[in-house]
Simulated scan of single mutants.
Amino acid sequence: MAKPKTKRQPANAPSRLADSTAYFCGQWIKRAEIGLSVDDIGFLQGVTAVERMRTYSRNVFELPLHLKRFCHTACHLGIDSLPDEARFTELVSELLTRNAVMVQEQGDVGITLFATPGRAGSPSPTISLHLNSLDFELIDRRMREGQPLIITDVTQQPDQTWPRSLKVRSRLHYYLADQFASRFATDAAGVLVDQDGTITETSLANLAIVEAGEIISPLAEQVLAGVTQQVIEMIAIKQSIPWRKERIDVERFHSAHEVLCMGTTTGIWFASQINDGEARTPGRVYERLRDRFANDSPDV
């Protein structure tokens, strides 16, 4: 099992990223050359299945779970003629191999996979796989100091629009929530609410509260099924920390002993403040989960 590490990026990381090799519609090209046609349905109507992944110690974190979710999303959106999970696994491996020097220099990298139905009238989907740099200073700061959360009145879309189990690029609601939150603190994340006003998630994180040593997170149907949360749940079981799922109202969220944040880029971190409430420090449950995640996170 890989131990998550954070290594500082070199000063020229952004320029190296532009020169990195990416997969686009069956070809290996420079990342900077990726271009989505204005006639692509992904641009015209925002129909895009996406997965954002990362490496820990140069191993892709929970790749099978990410690919399973990606294929579920693509299938629901009707994006056909995609490679199967085995082929995507090969492409991810080749992506890292082709960019081995940059990966070695940066230590760890982010990976983005996306697909659209392609151009209107075309039978071929648009597929891309490319690297992203990781902001290790921000990651370290969030793990040490937490992140402010601002509860907004931006609501999640109903399942009749599209199920929340899908990871798509239609993220206007997340953007609006974060824009609202940024008025209060630069690094704040906006918390979206459900139709009944209960807490759901942020643009980058699944959320959970801690009450008397027990973890409570929103119902599965209220949020995207986060890969990192699934791993944290398994760690909690091994640590004999109770975990249940139910609707969480705003008042309960405010008064929780701890608020946990879980997402791909940072792993696990905590809420340092909720709205204009008192500043929060790392809690005992968070520290236990963070330490076990750092030592026991599965890799592939």
Rank of each mutant, 00 (worst) to 15 (best):
T186P: 00
L224K: 03
A185R: 10
R87H: 11
I150R: 03
A74F: 08
K238G: 09
T264W: 07
S122N: 13
E145Y: 15
E201S: 15
F293V: 05
L91R: 07
A185C: 13
D299G: 15
N206P: 06
A208K: 11
I150T: 08
L36S: 00
R292K: 08
P123Y: 03
A177W: 01
F24K: 03
Q45N: 15
S255I: 00
A22K: 04
V191G: 02
T21D: 10
N275G: 05
G26A: 07
G197W: 00
N99G: 04
R252N: 03
V47G: 05
G263T: 01
F136A: 10
H130F: 15
A181W: 12
I199A: 10
L192T: 08
M262G: 06
G78R: 07
I139S: 06
I268V: 13
N295T: 15
A181E: 09
A189R: 10
V168C: 01
R87C: 09
I79W: 06
T198C: 14
S217C: 14
R58H: 13
L224Q: 02
T266I: 13
G190M: 11
F270W: 06
A279K: 07
T266L: 08
I79D: 04
S217F: 06
K245S: 14
Q106A: 09
E214H: 07
D39R: 15
T265Y: 11
L204S: 15
K3L: 11
K5M: 06
S170N: 10
T202I: 08
I215F: 10
H72C: 05
I232T: 01
Q157L: 12
V50T: 12
P64E: 10
V103A: 06
